[in-house]
Design a protein around this nucleic acid. Structure first.
Length: 410
RNA sequence: GCGUCGUUACUCAAGUGGUCUACGAGGGCAGACUGUAAAUCUGCUGACUUCGGUCUUCGUUGGUUCGAAUCCAACACGGCGCA
């Protein structure tokens, strides 16, 4: 029995994009779809009921974080992630591969998922091997990665098998192979070396997963890496796509990973999706700004997860609107008694004003982040489901043009 | 009335002769955030500025000193104690 089924409904003419349906043991995901991130088994400030209302179909949690706290065995004993967090829809778990990056090479350096051209100092290749003398919480070995817990400093070791085992305990519908997300500041030699590791780990993740009964109900996605280099990206996509166990079993879908120079994102996605088989779902890991979502969908991405909508909402009152992002904490909104967006159908816009939500932020009321998260999740979720509708209607280009007529990144 | 303590920027609050436009916190203003080390982080917050500086401020006034938020005197206001 297959844990996942993917059906393409319609394609964008002369492009890689498509609309489809992913079926999982916990329901269907209509694609393209945005996947809200609830790292520690909870959407920060949003209940599962509200998450549904906001338009979420599936959520993504994190292996590393849940392993540290409360512990994957406890999650298993609680009846699994679905039951524990009271979310009956599909769940995905990231493998912890991103933490290899964020707690490793990127640790303490201000390097994030996306580098902007304005950070020239960060773009110089800094090393070609593991040691540059900078303290970090994750160090990479041949067999796996050792992590120092960011919570209590305790030492932990992840191998591909360990990551998959934890993900089996968590019980998500879609799980990811353990990979190394590299920094764009690494040179090509390092990217190649890291890619070799990611592929070896992918194979071990696949072998281990398919050898366990869990593979009947949990789908495993392999992750493509390769940095900004076209040859490495295409090679990675091909290798991950054709990777099989001794019994001939393949990945059920693919993740596209990496930390990007903003300009490299587009080309990397296109190279990869030109190589990946059409009949399996593709997930662009950690990307979710509107302009990137359009780019991704157009280039054949089916799923996106991103912390941006919730983090922006919570931590800066940065809200998505059809005109671009607005900072609700700006002076001008103090006595603005209109909704965040007058034609938005979300709960926050239906009942509350900018002035009120801004007040809640200043007063440090929890409701502030909740309402802002609801709006941002609604916005992004609906933006992507709107793309799906447009693909089905054959009007993707028009939908995109209409959106960018008013939206600007500032 | 006498005694005593206090008065620092929007607020609270350090500072008791030069390194003081003056620590720190809050507030305010702005910015950042893309598989969540994140309800977080960064910058600015006396005025003017060609961004190198220039000028003005520590209750008020006067004084001591090369130099005062810091020492002295008087005054104003406030707390406490005694009448």
């Amino acid at each position: 029995m297959k844990p996942l089924n993917f059906k393409i409904e319609k394609k964008i003419p002369n492009a890689l994009g498509r609309a489809g349906v992913i079926s999982t043991p916990h329901g269907d995901i209509l694609t393209p779809a945005f996947v809200p991130v609830g790292t520690k088994g909870a959407m920060k400030g949003v209940t599962p009921e509200t998450l549904l209302e906001v338009g979420a179909q599936v959520v993504l949690s994190n292996t590393y974080h849940l392993y540290l706290q409360p512990g994957d065995e406890l999650v298993r004993n609680a009846g699994g992630l679905h039951k524990m967090m009271h979310w009956d829809g599909p769940i995905m778990t990231d493998s912890g591969g991103f933490q290899v990056f964020s707690l490793g090479a990127a640790y303490g350096k201000g390097i994030s998922k996306i580098l902007h051209p304005a950070d020239p100092s960060l773009q110089i290749p800094e090393r070609s091997s593991a040691d540059d003398g900078v303290a970090r919480l994750a160090t990479i070995g041949a067999d796996g990665v050792s992590f120092r817990s960011h919570i209590d400093g305790s030492l932990h070791y992840f191998t591909p098998e360990k990551s998959i085992e934890i993900q089996h305990n968590l019980g998500a519908d879609i799980i990811f192979a353990f990979d190394e997300c590299t920094s764009p500041t690494e040179d090509r030699r390092y990217q190649e070396e890291a890619l070799g590791r990611t592929h070896a780990w992918a194979k071990r993740s696949l072998d281990y997963h398919k050898s366990k009964p869990n593979h009947e109900k949990q789908a495993l996605f392999g992750i493509v890496q390769g940095g900004r280099d076209e040859e490495l990206r295409r090679k990675s996509a091909q290798e991950i796509a054709k990777m099989t166990t001794f019994a001939g079993e393949e990945f059920d879908g693919f993740g596209i990973g990496g930390s990007f120079d903003k300009d490299d994102l587009h080309s990397a996605v296109r190279w990869v999706n030109e190589e990946l088989p059409e009949d399996k779902p593709r997930h662009l890991l950690g990307i979710g700004e509107p302009e990137d979502l359009f780019m991704g969908v157009e280039n054949g991405v089916d799923l996106f997860d991103c912390v941006a909508p919730t983090r922006n909402a919570r931590s800066g009152a940065s809200l998505y609107t059809k005109f671009g992002r607005m900072n609700l904490l700006n002076q001008e909104y103090r006595s603005d008694f209109t909704p965040i967006e007058s034609d938005c159908g979300c709960y926050a816009c239906k009942y509350y004003t900018r002035a009120y939500i801004a007040h809640l932020f200043r007063a440090k009321e929890m409701l502030a982040g909740m309402l802002a998260s609801i709006h941002n999740l609604y916005f992004i979720t609906h933006l992507v489901s709107g793309m799906r509708e447009a693909i089905l209607a054959g009007t993707f280009a028009e939908y995109k043009a209409e959106f960018f007529k008013t939206y600007s990144r500032k």
